[in-house]
Design a binder for these strands. Structure first.
Lengths: 222, 222
DNA sequence: TAGATTGTTAATCGATTAACAATC
DNA sequence: TAGATTGTTAATCGATTAACAATC
């Protein structure tokens, strides 16, 4: 069956295409060509066609793509065409902001449970969900059967939480804690760390500033 | 001067090394070798040495690296060795969670102002900062001189906010809104979109699950 | 039909990995 | 000195870009 591995950058872009298509769809656009997608997303037309080519044929030469058809097919590829259960660990500021995100339903994700280790929070509500004791996580997920977990706890707790999620049957984890997590083969972890993003921006800012200096002071030693 | 461009993945990893070094430093570790870093971060020893090599020499053959020295030097590379002003736009759940992040000072960033367009929020406090009218942003940043901006508003507002930030003198933007932003040359934008991350995980989850099926049903047609 | 645009192949580019001489 | 580990060069790998035959 030699499954050709799909590059992760391609998967990330698929999600971007989906967003652009949704926006075009709302505007009433029915057909697009790859250069429209480039205009909308900044991703090159060639890259767009190449990305799609991993999954089959989607358009008509000379014509382009049907917006709603393409949307549905990409959703299917990413398995966003059916509701998926997500468990959230961490009911602090970040967890609260995540739980409040209005787009969960639209993107076909459903937060089925929230856990925390803070006794003063357990039993209270985070929006419409009761905050449960993190020690109940493994047991509770026997019912939920969630395969997707989100870690929104301090870095010091993140590995413990990851272990619990994995024991509880979670297969993929989105980790917001600034920590490198260990996990067995077959478990996928993606890290979101805005401080790291800012560090990159900090470097790029200094680079831009030095470029400007070089323009301002053209002569000098090269 | 032919500045050799540093790969962005290298910059991202530098930040990861920094985190590992901080953790080792706290544990009282004074020396590390590249394979220690691999054990700590999952990034290969060769990759670590290659990444550092863009910026000079950091270690001693046969010995390794001084933890605190390496920390300081990477911080300097990323310009994390001096305080940097950041303006935040969006005082909703996400903006609030960002403002509450306890690590700002430690990472040498300082949120100097928060803006929103919601009349019922303007004038109120978000933690210790007064929420200002986003229409004051350009003017207000003449004082702050922040070069770093964070967008934590709904997607529909994101481009407008980006434009304001840029007019206000911001050079690099961390965008949390699920939108592709346009910006002139010389402005750097990085997008953080957890829904996109979940979409990737959703695909990888289905991939993992099909692998397991294939193991469970070994014979079949290949 | 002529013009437009796809899907795919080949060429290019860039990043990661491996190997090793230099050196502590 | 012998063993360990660096910094760097060369080899490999993978992703992006360009080009174009197929086709609507």
């Amino acid at each position: 069956m030699t499954r050709k591995e799909i590059p992760v950058p391609t998967l990330e872009r698929l999600s971007t295409y989906l967003r652009a298509l949704a926006s075009l769809d709302i505007q009433g656009v029915e057909m697009v060509c790859s250069s429209n997608i480039e205009a909308e997303t900044g991703i090159s037309a060639a890259q767009f066609r190449k990305d799609l080519s991993y999954f089959g044929e989607f358009g008509k030469p000379g014509i382009g793509y049907y917006v709603s058809d393409l949307q549905k097919r990409i959703e299917k590829i990413l398995k966003l065409d059916r509701e998926q259960s997500v468990v959230l660990v961490g009911a602090g500021n970040l967890g609260s902001a995540l739980a409040a995100f209005p787009g969960w339903k639209q993107h076909r994700f459903s937060i089925v449970a929230v856990f925390d280790n803070n006794v003063s929070k357990i039993g209270r509500k985070l929006w419409d969900l009761e905050i449960q004791d993190v020690r109940e996580l493994v047991h509770a997920n026997r019912d939920y059967q969630a395969k997707i977990g989100i870690i929104a706890v301090p870095a010091t707790e993140a590995q413990n939480v990851a272990n619990l999620l994995i024991v509880g049957g979670v297969k993929v984890i989105l980790n917001f804690a600034p920590a490198t997590l260990r996990a067995p083969q077959g478990i996928v972890i993606r890290n979101v760390c805005f401080i790291q993003e800012l560090a990159v921006l900090s470097y790029l800012l200094s680079e831009e500033e030095s470029k400007i200096e070089n323009v301002a002071l053209p002569s000098g030693n090269k």
